[in-house]
Amino acid sequence: MNLYAIGYAGRNKDKTWEHIEELKKIGVPEPKSVPELYHLNPELLNYSDKIHIIGDETSGEVEIVLIADADGNIEVTVGSDHTDRGLETISIQKSKQICPKPLAEETIKFNDIEDEWDDLELFSYVKNDGEWVEYQSGNVSAIIPLEEIKTFLKENGVELKDATVFCGTVPLKDGFIFGDAFKCGLKSNKLNKTIEIEYEINKLKE
Rank of each mutant, 00 (worst) to 15 (best):
N2I: 01
L3M: 06
Y4M: 06
Y4R: 07
I6Q: 06
Y8I: 02
A9T: 06
T16K: 05
K24D: 14
P29W: 13
E36G: 00
L37F: 06
L37K: 07
L37W: 03
H39E: 15
L44W: 11
L44Q: 11
I51P: 08
H52E: 15
H52L: 06
I54Q: 10
G55Y: 13
G55I: 14
T58I: 15
G60H: 04
V62G: 02
V65G: 01
V65I: 00
L66Y: 07
A70W: 05
N73A: 09
I74M: 05
I74R: 08
V76D: 04
V78P: 07
S80W: 09
D84L: 13
L87W: 02
T89F: 03
I90A: 10
I92G: 02
I92A: 13
Q93C: 10
K96G: 06
Q97K: 05
P102A: 13
A104N: 03
A104Y: 08
E105G: 09
T107Y: 05
I108V: 13
I108S: 03
I108A: 09
N111L: 12
I113A: 01
D115N: 14
D118K: 02
L120N: 03
L120F: 01
L122G: 05
F123P: 00
F123D: 05
K127Q: 15
W132P: 03
S141Q: 11
A142I: 09
L146Y: 15
I149F: 11
T151K: 12
T151N: 11
L153F: 02
K154E: 12
G157R: 10
V158L: 00
V158K: 01
L160V: 05
L160W: 01
T164V: 14
T164N: 04
T164C: 08
T164L: 04
F166D: 10
G168Q: 01
V170E: 03
V170N: 02
V170Y: 06
L172Q: 08
L172R: 08
K173F: 05
D174Y: 11
D174M: 10
F176Q: 03
G179L: 11
A181N: 09
A181Q: 14
F182L: 07
K183S: 02
L186C: 02
S188L: 04
N189D: 15
K190E: 06
L191I: 07
N192E: 08
T194F: 00
I197P: 06
N202I: 15
K203Q: 14
K205L: 14
